[in-house]
Amino acid sequence: MIEEPPVLTLRRSFPRPSAAQIAAFRDVPTGFVCDAMGGQGALSSDIQPIGGGRDIDCRAVGPALVADNGPAEILATMGALHILEPGDIILSAVHGHRNCSASGDQFCGMMKNKGAAGFVTDGEMRDYDGIVEVGLPAWCTGLSPNSPYSNGPARAGFGAVIGGVRVESGDLIVADRNGVVVVPLAEIDRVIGRLSKVKELEGVLEAKVREGFCQMAAIEEMIADGRAVIED
């Protein structure tokens, strides 16, 4: 006979990025971060700033605190509040379940009171006007007024697959109006080391575009050596 799991399991202590590591990603566009990771790292584009970011400045950087709720559940997120440290970003995994809210305005208010830097879910949210009043940056797949349950089993402080990406508590989250990016804890310093090059290249290209640049040298080379053909 399979033993019944605990209704709720919490892990308070897990490795986290340092303050200096977090600071290195502040005000860095998510596109730059993805470029520094070989063009990858973003959660599914189904996960967007709530309301398209029109009413809340949806930007956040901080350690992931993963709440693995399961479909139509919220117990792990409730538990995550008890182990949350200021600056954490709660990632609520509901396994992509739709037509049920993963959080509303009151819960966002509690997260903000505890010091959360943001909230991300692969499910939906509700109480839009109230969430705007609270002002906590949030990312979700849409809105639904239906209520979740809190039956468990649930785990917080561990890991889960969210938006097609495996996220572990302690990974670094960088999120803005373009989406949510996960930087694995072990990769943070390597990504920081590549960011300066990405910024440099972007700066050079931006200056060239402003000066009128409009054709890629690579395409011209392909035409010249026959790899590309222009048909009139």
Rank of each mutant, 00 (worst) to 15 (best):
R12K: 14
P63H: 12
I192R: 15
G159M: 10
A102M: 03
A154P: 09
S45H: 11
S196F: 04
T30P: 06
G152F: 03
M216W: 13
A217M: 12
V204I: 15
D176R: 05
S144F: 07
V180T: 06
N113K: 14
N99H: 14
G109A: 08
H97C: 13
G109F: 05
A117G: 15
P184M: 00
Q215N: 14
S196L: 04
A36H: 00
G31S: 14
E187D: 14
L91S: 04
S196W: 02
A19R: 13
G31E: 15
R59I: 05
G79I: 02
I90D: 11
E3L: 12
A60T: 10
E211C: 11
A72K: 13
E3S: 10
D232Q: 14
T30M: 07
D176Y: 05
S103E: 13
C108E: 13
D122H: 12
E73G: 02
G142D: 06
S196N: 08
D176N: 11
G38F: 01
G152S: 07
G163Q: 03
D88P: 06
G170T: 01
A207Q: 14
G170S: 06
S169H: 09
A138N: 12
I90F: 13
A116I: 05
E206F: 10
V181Y: 00
N151E: 13
G212H: 12
A117N: 13
A154S: 14
R190E: 01
A60Q: 10
I22E: 08
V165S: 06
R155P: 02
R26I: 06
V7W: 09
Q21S: 05
V66I: 07
A20F: 01
K199T: 08
G164T: 05
P5T: 05
E187Y: 00
T141L: 07
L43E: 02
G164H: 10
L195Q: 04
A19L: 11
I188E: 00
I2Q: 13
G159V: 02
E73N: 03
L8S: 09
A217S: 15
A154W: 09
P6Q: 12
C214W: 08
V180E: 05
P71H: 10
D27T: 03
V120F: 12
T77M: 14
V132W: 03
E206C: 13
G226Q: 10
M1L: 13
C58P: 00
L75Y: 03
G41K: 01
V204H: 14
